[in-house]
Design a protein around this nucleic acid. Sequence first.
DNA 1: AATTTGACCAGTA
DNA 2: CTACTGGCCAAAT
Length: 104
Amino acid sequence: MILNRHQQIWLVVSKIPHGHVATYGQVAELAGLPRQARAVGSILSQLPRGSDLPWHRVINSRGELSFPLDSNKYQEQKSRLEQEGIQFTGEKISLTTYGWNGVD
DNA sequence: AATTTGACCAGTA
DNA sequence: CTACTGGCCAAAT
């Protein structure tokens, strides 16, 4: 059976290893939806309540979090990432942990 | 039915 | 570094 884009994206996001991050574009690409980064953000914004998907490991291509700096979401994502050992330099994620190539 | 919006991106200037 | 462009497309207006 063919998976709809939600499932494809959930699948990819669920595979991002602990302590690593992937960009929206990467997730879209790996999900077989090239150039549809927006769809990833759109779908992550509609996650079912209580989902255990590691949505916080998805960041934008600038190496930053796609939330307003003063928002709770920003803080939540940042703490979750820091909890996994990901370091920040200002608002950007350190290049050492940046980029998951889709293979563990 | 038409238009705008959105957790985005890569290229160009 | 910033600013703007066109690409993308389902959902909400």
